[in-house]
Design a protein around this nucleic acid. Sequence first.
DNA 1: TGAATTTCATTCGCTAATCAAATTATAATT
DNA 2: AATTATAATTTGATTAGCGAATGAAATTCA
Lengths: 158, 158
Amino acid sequence: MENRTQTSLIALRRILRATELNARTLARATGLTTPQLIVLEIVAAAGRATPKDISGKAGVGQATATALVDKLEARGLVTRTRGERDKRVVWVAPTEIGRELLKAAPDPLQKTFSKQFEALPDWEQGMIVAALERVGAMLNAGALDAAPLLDVGAVDRK
Amino acid sequence: MENRTQTSLIALRRILRATELNARTLARATGLTTPQLIVLEIVAAAGRATPKDISGKAGVGQATATALVDKLEARGLVTRTRGERDKRVVWVAPTEIGRELLKAAPDPLQKTFSKQFEALPDWEQGMIVAALERVGAMLNAGALDAAPLLDVGAVDRK
DNA sequence: TGAATTTCATTCGCTAATCAAATTATAATT
DNA sequence: AATTATAATTTGATTAGCGAATGAAATTCA
């Protein structure tokens, strides 16, 4: 593999690691787990959301979304309300406490990044945006590739 | 927040999302979960490793490392051997099957990325490397380099 | 209209990951 | 010899997540 490819992959991994660490820190700081926090953010950003919305945006199954909402509801961070028009749906909305929690625990990584990014000269900001978008496009291009299925052997059970 | 900052954050999220999807795809393809795959890669890259090594490199607790090694051992992908010199330690080493699994399941995301990256004109490659490193540095500015638990699944092999 | 189908949310049963604390065995130190 | 340190494991708990099944409501269609 070429040197530059290697270098770029390493750089990418550093970025991923930083975000992973950040997620854990944030989780500890708020007393919520990362998926719970994500759900709360989705709900707060949208004003209200159904479990189905949440499931789609958070990238988890509906059952999991329900379970996560359970946790948040138990902590008084969100409320559930049956839909008026369509009684099958449940609207999940943040409580005041939920909103305040998000406000009080702003993403430190995002903050750090924003601050530094905004201090960069114009040309460099442009370069970074272009590069990130390029990389994102490249990574998403492969998302549709079929997964090579391997015969790893039977799944063991005890 | 400025527009460009916003744009760059969105681009970053797209990258993260792609890697998450990739981890799941990979997990399905190999029949292993992401943490299991990471452990196998660590072990294979080093030739052999103790649970403590694994714990450090994967960024999980020792108990978790032991549990993950259990799974891999049950599937015949790694072996455990007591240390000769120091009988407290356990050396975890990949089996032939384990090595072959890794060889047969190259990271699809990494592959896609590499292929496209290498097709880029020289100046653009340079730009991307520079931008990624810049971003990595910015994100890591506050954080300590501690736990490299990556979704991307590949530990450097040179 | 009434029956079949679809759509949502939830529940249930199960597996995986993870940690902290306790335990066991071995090594090193005093 | 006794103490302390280190390595791995076991134990007990929580969280996340999936898939299948269930129930309720809306929609389609005959």
